[in-house]
């Protein structure tokens, strides 16, 4: 994995999805002193953010281009695509990359079958299913050796 996202003070990051994962990442970025905008369609999801969160929140459908313009996505140094829906994440990531020409993107993908799609467009991914299954496979092979 030769992919690196620049993290510097005063850099600007956009996080799509403010669920369990999105809120953790947004809190972390904010705690480190970065500018952050979090987008989620559910206003209640912003309750996941910590009291110290200094970024901005936007309510709206994450894959709406109007919403992305409002978030000034073209100025983002990196974009985290963390909604719970693979197809939504694919569309957001491709829109950010192809329409707004922002290249630093990490997307979450649940279905391992979708990893190929992201790879084709050179979009970095995190796949919880693969992470968990790899870890579990290690447990299994460890147990077999004993």
């Amino acid at each position: 994995m030769d992919f690196k996202i620049p993290f510097k003070k005063s850099f600007y990051y956009v996080v799509f999805g403010c669920g369990r994962l999105g809120s953790i990442i947004a809190n972390e970025l904010s705690a480190k002193g970065h500018s952050v905008v979090v987008i989620d369609r559910d206003e209640a999801s912003f309750e996941n953010l910590s009291f110290d969160f200094t970024g901005f929140t936007l309510i709206g459908e994450a894959n709406e281009i109007e919403q992305m313009r409002e978030a000034k996505i073209d100025k983002a140094h990196a974009v985290f695509v963390l909604t719970p829906d693979d197809n939504t994440n694919i569309m957001i990531a491709l829109t950010v990359k192809k329409y707004f020409n922002v290249n630093n993107i990490i997307a979450r993908v649940y279905n391992p079958k979708n990893i190929k799609t992201f790879a084709k467009y050179k979009i970095e991914i995190v796949c919880p299913t693969m992470l968990a299954s790899n870890r579990l496979k290690k447990f299994i092979s460890k147990g077999e050796k004993q």
Binding site: E64, I65, N87, I90
Partner: peptide
């Protein structure tokens, strides 16, 4: 639109279907 996009991408990339047509809900 995201589902239409993913379906059409699969049709194009995996099945090499040239006539993959998508309905677009949000004109943007």
């Amino acid at each position: 639109d995201q589902d239409n996009l993913v379906a059409c991408l699969a049709a194009r990339e995996i099945y090499k279907i040239e006539n993959a047509i998508s309905l677009i809900n949000d004109p943007e």
